[in-house]
Amino acid sequence: MISIQGLQKKYKDFSLDVSMQIPPGTVTGLIGRNGAGKSTTIKAILGLIKPDAGEVKVFSRNPREFGAADKEKIGVVLPNNGFSEELTPEDVACILRAMYPKFDESDFREKCRSQGISMKQQIKSLSTGTKAKLRVAVALTHGAELLVLDEPTAGLDVVARREVMDWIREYLEKDAERSVLISSHISTDLEGFCDDVYLIDNGAIVLHEETDTILDRYGVLKVSEEEFAKLDRAYLTAVKKEAFGYVCLTKEKQYFRENFPGIAVENAGIDSVILILLGGQR
């Protein structure tokens, strides 16, 4: 559904160089620190920026050449960017009805109602979290085949985050071919949700794994300097120096459990993968 080959974009103090594949029917997470290149990648996918080199294909087409019919198939959430804040959700419903032939107005109204979003209140008077929920409701209710969500849960509390993620799950259940690309700095949102994860840092993809692989095979070893000296480095993905010794990330936790019974090997989550990969030595 999305194919990125050698996408390059250079700015004064930042350059992006990434390749990604997002097949139909998958949920892909894009994680990384602020300024790592998540939003630039998403903008390239949406055709909002002109790549300096490389190729971006969405639905097998260059998104810079998209027409109305192509754009109708994509639901978008961009941070701090949406319909005018002078409008009300009622106005937004009216606009979506005129713009998208597949707009599901009853679903939109139900989503607003369930989140306590007043249809008559101007968007500018809504809280940050409510605005974020409204942006997601817009993206989900016009029959898109692909969702591109840049930080959709930013500003939401735990309960609202869960509800928004449930909306996205419902959206996916309606059609097995639907795909989602979601960027978030809240890794717990992505852990139980994404089929695979891309970790981006300094404009480059530093890790691409299926979420199940991360949860099943990746482990974290906390070892002293003496223990670290005895470890088989070939099986270590990243190492981070700590006060007590080293924290090591491995993709072969079973190997260490079987061969180093004296060392505690914890299961790795996306958080620990990010912390060690980005904070340590690869």
Partner: peptide, 20 residues
């Protein structure tokens, strides 16, 4: 002015080409 404040990026994702 309102469109500039709201951010053109989102408007550019709406189902229209540049000419329209």
């Amino acid at each position: 002015g309102d469109e500039i404040r709201s951010g053109y990026a989102f408007s550019m994702t709406l189902p229209f080409d540049a000419k329209t």
